[in-house]
């Protein structure tokens, strides 16, 4: 299932929540959807889930438009909202049962599907609890279970990790990998970027309704962080040499933006790895007592800080 977001725009009165965004992802992809608060992530996801209608543009799920055929699109999309309605009068099991029925699962098939999902999302122990009585993380699981119960091809998860305990987070991660293996197309928004880096193979960065970066993680990393950062630490007690080292480095070719970060010298390397080797050799020849010389790989967080400007 291919999800194509095309020139999507959504206005709420005078606020432009989503401003002409275009991106796409496919089966087996896990796409991270990141951006500062109020960037328009929830709005976009709600439009994909056919809850909201775009002011302009469209979203195609294997060619099915969410505006034209919302009923068909709904069958293909599982949406995990950031909040679950707090009904006081329905239990977890009944809630899942209702959705399974609503999506046309019948008889034994339904019972099996619900049981499998309850096990999968680990809510078997709380299935007789009322929705209102659930903790945040439990709700998150039920919400996920609801979206999975009819086995949709596209999963839209709005901050699913928020409020989950560490173990549940790891479980969620494994679960998403498993779903990606089963050829689901997954879009997941989160503010915990380190976590996204581990599971996502693509990313969409959005700010104030506009897309800043999109593509596979590797591409984005290459594009927005073409230089690798190198950190040098001198042996304890030799830190007085830091200013001197800094001056030295600034005169070395392939080095830019050298700076002192908490008694470490960081610089950006414009050349390739052999250039790094030469630099290290040169420094050792000049008798700097180097205990650590490491390349730090840019991660999603760096890119995020680089491309977004901040401010809501």
């Amino acid at each position: 299932m291919k999800v194509q977001v095309k020139n999507l725009r959504k206005e709420f009165g005078k606020t432009v929540a989503v401003d002409d965004i275009t991106f796409s992802f496919d089966s087996g992809h896990v796409f991270g959807f990141v951006g500062p608060n109020g960037a328009g992530k929830t709005t976009t996801m709600r439009i994909i889930a056919t809850i909201e209608e775009p002011t302009q543009g469209d979203i195609l799920l294997n060619g099915i438009s969410v505006c034209e055929e919302p009923e068909l699109a709904r069958r293909a999309v599982g949406y995990v909202p950031d909040t679950l309605p707090a009904h006081a009068d329905i239990t977890v099991h009944e809630y899942l049962d209702f959705y399974a029925r609503a999506y046309g699962l019948r008889g034994k098939k339904r019972t099996q599907a619900i049981e499998a999902i309850e096990e999968f999302t680990n809510v078997t122990g709380i299935r007789e609890k009322h929705l209102k009585a659930l903790s945040k993380g439990m709700k998150q699981r039920v919400s996920l279970g609801r979206a999975l119960v009819y086995d949709p091809d596209v999963l839209i998860l709005d901050e699913p990790a928020a409020g989950l305990d560490p173990r549940a987070r790891v479980e969620l991660r494994e679960l998403l990998m498993l779903l990606a293996e089963r050829k689901k197309a997954i879009l997941i928004s989160s503010h915990i970027l380190t976590e996204l880096t581990e599971i996502c193979n693509g990313v969409v960065i959005i700010e104030r309704g506009k897309i800043l970066e999109t593509g596979t993680i590797d591409d984005v990393l290459k594009k927005s962080a073409p230089r690798r950062t190198v950190a040098i630490r001198l042996l304890e007690g030799n830190h007085h040499q830091n200013p001197q080292l800094l001056k030295e480095l600034l005169q070395t070719p392939f080095v830019v933006n050298a700076r002192d970060v908490a008694n470490e010298i960081h610089f950006e390397l414009t050349g390739d790895e052999s250039a790094a080797c030469d630099i290290l050799g040169g420094l050792i020849a000049k008798r700097y007592k180097i205990i650590e010389f490491r390349q730090t790989k840019a991660n999603l967080e760096d890119i995020f800080m680089n491309v977004t400007k901040g401010g809501v």
Binding site: R46, A49, T50, I51, E52, E71, R74, R75, Y79, P81, P85, Y99, A102, Y103, G104, Y150
Partner: peptide, 14 residues
Amino acid sequence: QENNPDLLYVSSLS
């Protein structure tokens, strides 16, 4: 209510 993504929208019931 629009902020309730429940029943009337997120299901394939006609």
